[in-house]
């Protein structure tokens, strides 16, 4: 392929590789983290505790979508979208209902006794274990595929090379954008949304100005549960459906929440993207980008075969380091969260 001017001087192969491995991958995993962190941060903002069961809510939502997909596999073909995506709204609704049920059964009675916040955290560990046990009891531990038909892969030509993005990845990005816009409109325009913000600001003041606490709590769980189900389903569509998501996804999500400032939905979104991009940048092999420079370098400099900041198997360290760094230098998060 003939190339002229500026482009011909650029190492196109390497740049496209970088876009595929870092930009696209970071955007994808960042969106999943963002969707998860929004729910977590709302719950913390309203109910003042870290819900450790959130990771397993994501898994549960994904498994519900999986069951629905298996029940009506032909549904997707009729609409022209993957079946798992078509049934996702139903899975979100069911998960939201389950979330409210969990609150009614386990968190609400404890809240009534006016406990220390840590008691609710321990209770959420209990709920986490129950969900984990149930999910593995019902569906076993083997990974599953959410797709009934092969995944579609889009190739976007870029200067003679292809940027590769798959169908679930595209859907994930679209859903994230839609969810952010909808959440923004809900929080700023609707009555319930304003009530939620008021309660997150000052629960007592909100209560004495006549805001129904129960309703706000219910709405919070609905949003958290349905977003968790969406994130879980889309992640499972992108890779595969596994029951052992919980801790591996929980730590990045909590990191995203704290980076963004607790109780701040917009902060959680940017935090999610930040954590996602940092993860992919950290495990990326930078040696590949330096390779085109090799002919220009003097002989005594030898490029190592792999320059990654973090080996892939230590990926979980990345969100943790971010978390620790934020806790040391900016415990309120970059957007100045309220609850501390």
């Amino acid at each position: 392929m003939e190339q002229v001017g500026f482009l011909s001087a650029m190492p196109i192969n390497e740049i496209v590789f970088f876009i595929n491995k870092v930009v696209v991958a970071g955007l994808i995993i960042g969106s999943v983290y963002a969707l998860g962190a929004v729910g977590l941060t709302l719950v913390w903002g309203i109910l003042r505790f870290a819900n450790f069961a959130h990771g397993d809510l994501m898994t549960l939502g994904a498994f519900i979508a999986f069951v629905l997909t298996m029940v009506m596999p032909g549904l997707g073909a009729a609409v022209g979208l993957p079946t798992a995506f078509v049934v996702m709204p139903i899975a979100m609704a069911i998960t939201a209902l389950i979330t409210i049920g969990l609150d009614k059964a386990f968190y609400q009675p404890l809240r009534k006794t006016n406990p220390k916040p840590i008691t609710l955290v321990i209770a959420s560990f209990g709920v986490m274990l129950m969900l984990q046990g149930l999910i593995r009891l019902i569906w076993g531990t083997a990974p599953r595929n959410m797709y009934v038909t092969p995944k579609e892969i889009y190739r976007i030509p870029f200067a003679g090379k292809d940027i590769i993005i798959t169908e679930p990845q595209l859907l994930l990005i679209v859903v994230t954008v839609v969810a952010i816009v909808a959440l923004h409109l809900f929080l700023t325009r609707s009555r319930t949304g304003k009530a939620m913000r008021a309660m997150s600001d000052n629960a007592d003041l909100a209560r004495i100005s006549g805001i129904s606490t129960d309703k706000v709590v219910r709405t919070t769980w609905i949003i958290a549960g349905s977003l968790a189900a969406a994130a879980g389903t889309l992640l499972a569509m992108d890779v595969s459906l596994k029951p052992d998501l919980s801790f591996n996804i929980l730590i990045p999500i909590v990191a995203a929440m704290i980076v963004g400032g607790i109780g701040q939905p917009y902060g959680a979104i940017s935090g999610g993207l930040l954590v996602g991009f940092t993860e992919t940048v950290a495990v990326f092999n930078w040696s590949i980008l330096l390779r085109p420079l090799k002919p220009h370098l003097p002989d005594w400099i030898e490029l190592p075969a792999s320059i990654a900041f973090v080996p892939t198997e230590y990926k979980i360290v990345v969100p943790f380091v971010i978390l620790v760094a934020v806790l040391i230098w900016r415990p309120n998060g970059i957007f100045k969260g309220k609850v501390l």
């Binding site: 386990f106 009675p109 404890l110 008691t119 321990i122 209770a123 560990f125 209990g126 709920v127 986490m128 274990l129 129950m130 969900l131 984990q132 046990g133 149930l134 593995r136 009891l137 531990t141």
Partner: peptide, 16 residues
């Protein structure tokens, strides 16, 4: 895995 479920349930029941 049922035992994992029971552990979780026990935590909550004891707390309550």
């Amino acid at each position: 895995q049922m035992r994992v479920f029971v552990i979780g349930l026990t935590i909550i029941l004891v707390l309550r």
